[in-house]
Write a protein that binds this DNA or RNA. Structure first.
Lengths: 197, 197
DNA sequence: CTCCTGATGATACACACGTATCAGATACAC
DNA sequence: GTGTATCTGATACGTGTGTATCATCAGGAG
């Protein structure tokens, strides 16, 4: 054989260049040449490892999702025996762009969003399988002792979707992070019956 | 003078071609030539009426917003003396892609979304001024007789953001419209205290 | 050593893009 | 009519794109 380099690492290095460009200037600025320059490699190398641009975009998104899942599982493992409310708060604030990594990840997802409508392969990677976050939140709500009449599924759906949407608003400077977190805490208070102080 | 054609109507005709292309294939497929073809006019005409592509994109978005506001005001006027709950339901379901017009409008907004991060002019048009929908919902909630302890502002923020997000999920076939509406009704029930059986 | 395959660089091609240029057509003022 | 301003078509230019081609380098196998 030959110089046996770590292909997977190389691919990941190039994929991260895609993320940076997509987050900063959108997917329309992701060209093979731009990616090569951002990753500090030659155009030919990008071609070599990904063959086609479509492949590059799909794999870059797949890697991002894998990284996201790893991070999510790490965070879940981090909160060992917290209260149900604390766990919920952690899971939901995890959806917000509160640090550079999550901000970039959110920006990349936004950049990909519209393409998922015309590209089924991207849509598959983008959407993943099932609704793991909603399921997790539903499970946490089901296990907790909520205010009577609260339905875990419906509450989880609006919470996850709403917090995600407010996270996008944070990116647009429509809200500050602490405002979103205040809204989240308010709703957790209402659900756990700890509101009327 | 000369052939006095209706410039504004022409511009609108071309802008609608932008919408159709952006909704179907994304902003990256919106080229001057594609727009001209879709609108059934010559490339030169698109140049003539919009000068530059950037201008075309900005004005097309502005027109879409104007149309959206007109539709919103018309709908608000349509529900004359309904119950507070009915009005809220109408306003919030208006955010969902329940017909072709709203579906297209949502798709176009998604297509523009990521560009608003790198283009301040687009961001200005995209975000508009203030938070009119949230204000409207907050107002409706404030005027209604809610369950004790409910805060109109926080409730409005999560409702608007959540329903918007669930609307995006409808576009992705992650939820059916009736599921989202069921979630909405559930939350209205909780707010108005009409939940238990 | 020689080979030979994996890995990389340089360069070219065909095409689509945004924009510019030039010509011509149309219809009203005079 | 003649002029003139508004409007429209055909076409060209330069650039960036995705992809393909060709040559070369590196390093283990025999």
């Amino acid at each position: 054989m030959a110089k046996r380099v770590d292909h997977d690492q190389r691919r990941r290095q190039i994929a991260e260049a895609v993320w940076r460009i997509a987050a900063a200037r959108g997917l329309e600025s992701v060209s093979m040449r731009e990616v090569a320059a951002e990753a500090g490699v030659s155009l030919r190398l990008v071609q070599y490892y990904f063959e086609t641009k479509h492949n590059l975009l799909v794999l870059a998104l797949r890697y991002l999702h894998e990284q996201g899942e790893q991070r999510a599982q790490a965070r879940i493992a981090e909160l060992p025996d917290e209260s149900a409310r604390g766990a919920l708060r952690s899971v939901l604030t995890e959806l917000l762009p509160l640090d550079e990594e999550r901000t970039q990840s959110l920006r990349v997802h936004i950049a990909y969003f519209s393409r998922t409508h015309s590209d089924p392969e991207l849509a598959k990677v983008f959407l993943g399988e099932g609704t793991p976050i909603e399921d997790l939140v539903t499970g946490l709500l089901s296990a907790a002792s909520l205010v009577p009449g609260a339905d875990p599924r419906h509450e989880a759906n609006l919470l996850v979707s709403g917090i995600t949407g407010l996270g996008l608003d944070v990116l647009h400077d429509r809200y500050r992070p602490d405002e979103v977190i205040a809204t989240l805490d308010y709703h957790l208070d209402r659900l756990f019956g700890t509101a009327g102080a």
